[in-house]
């Protein structure tokens, strides 16, 4: 475990050199939040109105949190990196190191994500406070609970994207698969809470990985309860274990197919 923490630390140190460049990338985050602010202000004619169980402020905080999770993940870049590792044979040079490639990728990506998460969270909270003037009801317990859920969500999401990238062992380009995944997250997990969807598909979304990686921590942030927290953490732990198993399985099968040409 110590070596993986060192991988995490090295990636964090490495990215600290580019803190300014990373921050510039968050301009799009500000624009997005501004758009959603206007959209929900238009939908909620009266700010005290409740639609599908959410006030306007809760809706905007919900989007702020789901967007923090998505923006800090930088999934497209990570998916491309895993793909390139497989395609260029770079993965081979990780094989001969005394660590597992899946865990190496996970901790290395968490190193980048942690820095991005801190930066975009500060930005999100400042923006939310400026636009809305207040936070949802928060306690020390709820903040810790939301943070745990955010960490688990990021780990699960990283593992899913790793699996999608590792499909490169079998097909030439995995970016279309990633594209579908990212759009599902956007539609079903980022913009609207599950209560906005037809009753019939709500349980499907709730027990899908999309809920575990995106909606769940945001829902906890806007409406924390101990029962929801425990339920969320159980779902996330199950998904974490399942995703870890699947990613290792794809890697183990795929690496046997590895052809490293040239040089």
């Amino acid at each position: 475990m110590k070596k993986y923490l060192y991988i995490f630390k090295s990636e964090l140190m490495s990215n600290l050199q580019y803190i300014f460049d990373i921050s510039i990338g968050f301009i799009s985050y500000c624009i997005l939040i501004y758009i959603f602010l206007n959209l929900w202000q238009y939908v909620y004619s009266d700010p005290s109105e409740i639609i599908n169980g959410y006030t306007m402020k809760q809706m905007i905080w919900y989007v702020i949190i789901t967007e923090i999770l998505w923006m800090s993940l930088s999934g497209r870049k990570y998916n491309r990196k895993i793909c390139n590792d497989v395609k260029t044979g770079n993965i081979a040079y990780n094989i001969i190191k005394p660590y597992n490639y899946v865990e190496y990728s996970l901790f290395s990506h968490l190193g980048i994500t942690t820095l991005r998460f801190i930066l975009v969270t500060i930005l999100g909270i400042v923006l939310g406070f400026i636009f809305l003037g207040s936070f949802p009801e928060l306690t020390v317990l709820s903040i810790i609970g939301v943070l745990i859920s955010c960490v688990l969500a990021t780990i699960i999401n990283t593992l899913i994207i790793t699996s999608l990238g590792l499909i490169s062992f079998y097909i030439e380009d995995t970016s279309p698969i990633y594209w579908v995944y990212s759009k599902l997250i956007l539609v079903l997990g980022t913009i609207f809470p599950i209560e906005y969807f037809p009753k019939i598909i709500q349980p499907i979304i709730k027990y899908s990985p999309i809920y575990a990686v995106s909606s769940a921590p945001a829902k906890l942030f806007v409406d924390f309860s101990l029962i929801t927290f425990i339920e969320t953490i159980i779902i996330q732990i199950v998904y974490f274990l399942a995703c870890l198993g699947i990613t290792h399985f794809i890697y183990k099968k795929g690496v046997k197919k590895l052809n490293v040409n040239g040089g």
């Binding site: 110590k2 060192y6 050199q17 040079y93 660590y99 040089g263």
Partner: peptide, 21 residues
């Protein structure tokens, strides 16, 4: 033809990294 070092870190930090792994 392949790099195994972390390009944004110093050689010293890289060596410490390899020691840890």
């Amino acid at each position: 033809q392949k790099e195994q070092l972390w390009t944004h870190l110093t050689p010293y930090d890289n060596f410490k990294f390899f020691g840890a792994i």
